[in-house]
C-alpha cells in the first residue's frame, strides 16, 4: 500500500508541468502560465527547484521502500537485527549531497532576487500608483487617469507599480504577471515588469485584510500599444455628457447629483468624493465591487440596494431607492463609458 501511494504521489509531482500548460484558459489565476518577464523568471526558477526537489524525493522514496520492504525483516522472522549504528561515508554523502543541491538552487535564486528588484525604474517605464483600500483598488496614472479595480497596461513596455496602502496591509497579486508584493501603509513597494501578451488577468488581494478579504479582487487588462492608446484617450476625455434624448439617464444623473453618493465618489464635473472608487468611467468597466460581480444593470441595482449583502463590512451604506428611481440611477451609471 505504501509503495503504491508513494508511486502515485511521485507521478503527481511529475505532472505539475502538464497541469500548468493545460490550464491557463480555465484557471485564469494560474502561476504556471507566465505572461510577463517577471513571471517568466519566477516560473523558470520554480521549475528548477521543483526538479531538484523531485530528484531528492525520489531518492528518499526509493531508499524508504528498500529499507522497509527489501532490506529488513519482521519481528519473529529469522535473523537478528543488524546493529549498524553509523557509517561515516553514508553520513557525509547525505550531508554534502543536499548541500550541493542547495548550492545549485541558491545561485539562480540570488540572481533572480537582484534581477527583479531593481533600485530604479527602467528607462521609459510607465509608473503607476496602486493604492489599496479595504476592500478595493485605486489605480492612478501619471497623466491623471484614475480608475478603480481594473488596471490597464500596455504590452511590451516596462511598467513600474508603486504600491501603497490607505489603511492596513494588503498584497498585490496577479499570478500570471508575477509574484506578490505587499502594500504597507506608510511605505512604498515596487513591482517592475513587462507584460508580453495582451489579455485579461485576474488578480486578488493576498494578505488577509479583514472581513471582506475574499472580495478584494481586480482585473489587469494588458492591451496592445494601440489599444492602450485608445483606452487612454477615452479615459482622458473626461465624463461623457448625458445624451438629452435619454430621459432615464437624465433622471439618473439628477438623482446621483443630489444623493449621498457624491460624498464618497468622484464623477468628473459632478462630484468630488474620494472615499470610494472613482466612477467617471464606471460604465466602461467589466466588473463592479472590486471584481466580485459582472458589471450588468441587474448587478448594479443589487449592489446599490445592499452592498453588505455582496461584500460584508463594506463602507458603502445601502441606498434607499427602489423602482424607477433606482433603474434611472443604474442607467446613468452604466452610461458612463
Amino acid at each position: 500500500m505504501i509503495r503504491i501511494r508513494s508511486a502515485a504521489r511521485f507521478a503527481s509531482l511529475a505532472a505539475i508541468a502538464l497541469a500548468g500548460c493545460a490550464s491557463a484558459s480555465d484557471k485564469p489565476m494560474t502561476t504556471l502560465s507566465p505572461k510577463s518577464d517577471l513571471a517568466q523568471w519566477i516560473y523558470r526558477l520554480f521549475i528548477q527547484v521543483t526538479l531538484w526537489d523531485a530528484l531528492i524525493f525520489a531518492i528518499v522514496v526509493v531508499a524508504f521502500i528498500l529499507a522497509l520492504f527489501v532490506f529488513s525483516t519482521r519481528v519473529g522472522e529469522a535473523g537478528p537485527a543488524s546493529t549498524a549504528a553509523s557509517d561515516l561515508t553514508l553520513e557525509v554523502a547525505w550531508t554534502l549531497g543536499p548541500a550541493l543541491v542547495l548550492l545549485m538552487i541558491s545561485i539562480p535564486t540570488v540572481r533572480t532576487i537582484f534581477r527583479t528588484q531593481g533600485e530604479h525604474a527602467p528607462e521609459g517605464a510607465l509608473e503607476i500608483r496602486v493604492i489599496a483600500h479595504q476592500w478595493w483598488w485605486d489605480f492612478q496614472y501619471p497623466d491623471g487617469i484614475k480608475t478603480a479595480n481594473e488596471l490597464h497596461l500596455p504590452s511590451g513596455r516596462s511598467v513600474r507599480l508603486h504600491l501603497e496602502s490607505d489603511d492596513i496591509i494588503h498584497s498585490f497579486w496577479v499570478p500570471q504577471l508575477g509574484g506578490k508584493r505587499d502594500l504597507v501603509p506608510g511605505q512604498v513597494n515596487q513591482i517592475t515588469l513587462v507584460a508580453n501578451t495582451p489579455g485579461m488577468y485576474p488578480g486578488q488581494c493576498a494578505e488577509f485584510c479583514g472581513l471582506s478579504h475574499a472580495n478584494m479582487r481586480f482585473r489587469v487588462f494588458v492591451d496592445s500599444p494601440a489599444d492602450f492608446a485608445t483606452w487612454q484617450t477615452s479615459q482622458l476625455a473626461g465624463p461623457v455628457s448625458v445624451p438629452p434624448d435619454r430621459q432615464l439617464v437624465m433622471d439618473g444623473a439628477r438623482i446621483f447629483a443630489n444623493s449621498p453618493c457624491t460624498t464618497c465618489h468622484t464623477i468628473q464635473g459632478v462630484s468630488r468624493g474620494y472615499i470610494g472608487p472613482e466612477l467617471t468611467h464606471f460604465g466602461s468597466r467589466s466588473t463592479l465591487a472590486a471584481g466580485v460581480l459582472a458589471n450588468t444593470p441587474d448587478n448594479v441595482a443589487k449592489w446599490i440596494t445592499d452592498p453588505n449583502e455582496i461584500k460584508p463590512g463594506a463602507n458603502m451604506p445601502p441606498l434607499l431607492l427602489a423602482g424607477p428611481k433606482r433603474d434611472a440611477l443604474v442607467a446613468y451609471l452604466e452610461s458612463l463609458k
Binding site: E127, R129, Q140
Partner: peptide, 24 residues
C-alpha cells in the same frame, strides 16, 4: 533599509491628490 528605500517617493510624477484618505 526600510527608512531609506520604503519611504514614499516625492518625485513620483503621479498627482498626489486627495485619494489617500489615510485611514491608517
Amino acid at each position: 533599509y526600510l527608512a531609506h528605500h520604503g519611504a514614499p517617493n516625492p518625485e513620483l510624477n503621479a498627482p498626489r491628490n486627495a485619494s489617500l484618505s489615510w485611514k491608517s
